Amino acid sequence: MTKDQLPPRLLTRRRALLAGAAAVGTAGTAGLFTTFAGDEPVRRAAAPTSAPTPAAGPQARSALKPSSYRLQPLTGFGPPRAAPRRTLVRHAPMLQVNGRGRRMVLTFDDGPDARYTPHILDTLRDYDIRAMFFVCGEMVAENGDLVARMADEGHVVGNHTWSHPLLTRLSRRAIRSEMERTSDVIEDSCGERPVWFRAPYGAWNRAAFQLGAELGMDPLAWTVDTLDWTTPGTRRIVDRVENGAAPGVVVLSHDAGGDRSQSVTALRFYLPRLLDAGYHLTVPERHYA
């Protein structure tokens, strides 16, 4: 059967497919030049003032939206996409960081608290220091603006569960809920999901490590515990930090969960002394598989 002998319905379908393919090719090419041509944005051609005269013959149906498969060749002009990074499932939390350059990390748990967290952030800002805040979801729900400030000022926001429970007494499903809800509310507050996790009371189990990795988070514990939650007095908190200071050390303090005025005052004393002693107070780097 020749072309002239094809039934009219088949010719109509073929014309429709050809017309749709031409439309997709034209749109894809125009989008390519608009996106990638030079540093200056390329203006699209002005729309015609009048609609073009339709071609003679039966009209094709409106072209289907191009699938991602059809547009795949257009992405070949950019750099190849890197494989997604996979978080390691650890069997123990990290207790310290790379101490090269006399690096140390300051961490604050259980917040944010409108009474104490702003003062800690003010002191860190005054000395241009970055720290880590392991926040509880129920506290973030009430103080999302403080989480946004943490992120804006370069601090790391970590996941410390929703309600600060003892994870070793929870089911796997309950642990996931505690962690996932907290990651969600952190993302809602500052636009990014946390990549670090700390178990309340330092009580870890296999489920916590596995679920943390599934949610893209590394577990971080601490090296020096200031025991500031016992309100031992400002002087003792300062002494514990200064006596425990060493390259790679991770210091645990609190900005919520009780009266944290001693923690706020102690930071103002030991922070400049650590800097004078040559310590570089920073945040840790991630490790992937």
Rank of each mutant, 00 (worst) to 15 (best):
E242H: 08
E242L: 15
N243L: 13
N243H: 14
G244W: 00
G244I: 00
G244C: 00
G244L: 00
G244A: 04
A245P: 06
A245F: 12
A245W: 12
A245I: 13
A245R: 04
A246V: 02
A246E: 13
P247S: 09
P247Y: 15
P247M: 13
P247L: 12
P247G: 11
P247K: 12
G248N: 01
G248S: 05
G248T: 03
V249M: 11
V249A: 15
V249K: 08
V250L: 07
V250T: 05
V250M: 03
V250Q: 02
V251R: 04
V251Y: 05
V251Q: 04
L252Y: 02
L252N: 02
L252R: 03
S253Q: 14
S253K: 07
S253A: 15
S253E: 14
S253P: 01
H254S: 09
H254A: 10
H254Y: 12
D255F: 02
D255E: 14
A256Q: 01
A256M: 08
G257W: 01
G257C: 04
G257S: 04
G258I: 03
G258M: 04
D259T: 11
D259V: 06
D259K: 10
R260Q: 13
R260F: 12
S261V: 03
S261H: 13
S261I: 09
S261G: 05
S261N: 00
Q262K: 03
Q262S: 11
S263V: 12
S263G: 14
S263Q: 07
S263D: 11
S263L: 11
T265Q: 15
T265S: 15
T265L: 13
A266H: 05
A266F: 10
A266K: 02
A266N: 09
A266V: 13
L267F: 12
L267P: 05
L267K: 07
L267A: 13
L267M: 15
L267G: 06
R268N: 08
R268Q: 14
R268G: 07
R268D: 13
R268S: 14
R268P: 01
F269W: 06
Y270N: 01
Y270T: 05
Y270V: 05
Y270P: 00
Y270W: 15
L271N: 05
L271H: 03
P272N: 08
P272R: 08
P272W: 08
P272S: 03
R273W: 04
R273L: 10
L274A: 09
L274E: 11
L275D: 02
L275Q: 01
L275M: 09
